[in-house]
Amino acid sequence: MAVLKRVQQWATFARIWHIYDAAWQNPFESAGVLKKYLTGLYKPIYHPMNDCGDHIVVINSAEIALPGDEWKKRVYFHHTGYPGGATWTLAWELHEKDPTMILKKAVYSSLDKNLQRRYTMQRLHIFPDANVPSDMLKSISNQIKQLRLVPKRLDTYSEEEIKSFPKIYDYPKPYILK
């Protein structure tokens, strides 16, 4: 390698666009991963004062999966500032109103609490489905690996796959299947 090119790093300071498929992912675990890319923590040039964060396009945020009974038990608090202005919204209610909000709030609260936080959030683009504007899709150059395997639903299997699935035993002839 040439002496001058030894330390050459193309596009070190360029903003990279990542894509992340949130289908069947835990938003609170994903927030930690997204934070790493949003703030540029994964780059060796990182410095808190260095503006080296990237853009992330998150798709399918409507299909996130909350662990346990979090849909019923997790509560989002809001206060208007007026007396009696407090509201408590359950996670499933919030998700019905805006399917991007749970992920957005999870990322927002996982970021460092400083003046840069709102500008960092502007680099996060969340979409409830896979319909992403084409100009955004053009600039994407990396996919962030999903944290969990997406399970395959039974109704998405084809007839052949179900028939060829190995059986432990055959049902007896008089057995009535629904």
């Binding site: 923590l41 994964y42 780059k43 060796p44 040039i45 990182y46 410095h47 808190p48």
Partner: peptide
Amino acid sequence: NLWETRINAG
């Protein structure tokens, strides 16, 4: 802390 973050990234 900063050095550790950078080495971690590398």
